[in-house]
């Protein structure tokens, strides 16, 4: 009888069916046109070439990809400027994604142990910050981290700077690039960049980890406790293994999302440490205007993102099969 319950009501016939087919066809057309064609265009144009002063032309050349990987003047000389940008894209994205997930995990776990009402309140708060535009968030951190306001000013005024100088930590900070001769400075620094990027995706990390953690049976942890496991042991032996897959999936999604980050990089990162996303912007709509090259960089970024997603899926399938 369970079989019977799963089967839906008897199939409805003609007019609805015909309309359904029309709507279905229409949706496929829209989805293909709007979800796939733009990416297809990027791919096609990435093989095109730039016309000086007149935009670009269709072509089938690999010049843009050559330029990306070995430089425009290859084989006379090899530059790795654009590869370097890709490296920074990856580096920021990995560090910020891992940082966000690592800090979001205990937070989300604690949140799911609260009442449904409290959870709803936290979710409202997180969703509000999550949806807040990158421009506002960068604005906020910029005020906090700017050299003539926020934290540096606070450090100097409260004497923390002097204390740091006295204890010798100031020189350590200088070595890390977090201080100029007079005071601490966070702009521009990798620290500020990663902090802002991590902040940007932190609510996403919580939202993405939330389903897995909220479905975690609390009696699992309780059972471990009754067997004498300390809280830390419970986390390590019960909770972490149970959420390993969502943890990896979340990190990957945040990573892909961060590959496209733009404003935070331009504001907080040193120009020598700018990313592919920034370069894409410059080429497509910014100062350098080389749309085919921008498209080629977009393709590389997409391939990188796709490769990581596929790799992640492989890994998770493997560990699932092993489990």
């Amino acid at each position: 009888m369970t079989v019977a319950a799963q089967i839906g009501p008897m199939a409805e016939v003609p007019p609805a069916l015909r309309w359904g087919a029309v709507v279905n066809l229409l949706l496929w057309a829209i989805a293909l046109l709007l979800c796939l064609v733009p990416f297809g265009l990027v791919l096609l144009i990435s093989f095109g070439h730039k016309v000086e002063g007149a935009g670009w032309d269709w072509a089938f050349s690999s010049e843009n990809y050559l330029r990306f990987f070995v430089g425009a003047n290859w084989p006379a000389e090899t530059t790795s400027l654009y590869l370097g940008q890709l490296y920074w894209s990856m580096r920021y994205a990995v560090v910020a994604a891992v940082l966000a997930v690592v800090t979001a995990l205990p937070f989300t776990y604690l949140m799911t142990r609260q009442s449904r009402r409290a959870q709803a309140r936290w979710l409202v708060f997180l969703l509000a910050t999550l949806s807040l535009s990158e421009v506002f968030i960068v604005m906020g951190w910029d005020i906090i981290l700017s050299n003539n306001s926020g934290l540096p000013m606070l450090f100097a005024a409260s004497g923390v700077t002097d204390w740091l100088k006295d204890t010798g930590w100031f020189d350590v900070l200088r070595d890390w690039g977090l201080a100029n001769p007079r005071n601490v400075k966070f702009k521009t620094s990798e620290f500020a960049t990663v902090l802002t990027l991590s902040y940007l995706v932190w609510p996403y990390a919580v939202i993405l980890l939330y389903p897995a953690l909220s479905r975690l049976d609390p009696s699992l942890a309780e059972a471990a406790r009754t067997m004498g496991a300390r809280p830390w042991t419970v986390a390590r032996t019960v909770i972490l293994p149970a959420v390993r897959l969502p943890l990896m999936g979340t990190t990957l999604l945040l990573f892909v999302f961060l590959l496209g980050a733009y404003v935070a990089i331009t504001v907080f990162a040193d120009p020598s440490q700018h990313t592919t996303a920034v370069s894409i912007y410059e080429n497509v709509r910014g100062s350098t205007l080389n749309a085919p090259f921008g498209a080629a960089q977009s393709v590389v970024l997409l391939v990188a993102a796709g490769a990581f997603l596929v790799l992640g899926q492989r890994l998770s399938r493997k560990s699932q099969g092993g489990a």
């Binding site: 009888m1 019977a4 319950a5 008897m10």
Partner: peptide, 18 residues
């Protein structure tokens, strides 16, 4: 007993199954 087909029979009488 459950699984004997009685609900399926009823659903066919109702027209919910062919």
């Amino acid at each position: 007993p459950s699984g004997c087909g009685k609900t399926t029979l009823l659903r066919m009488i109702a027209g919910l199954e062919v």
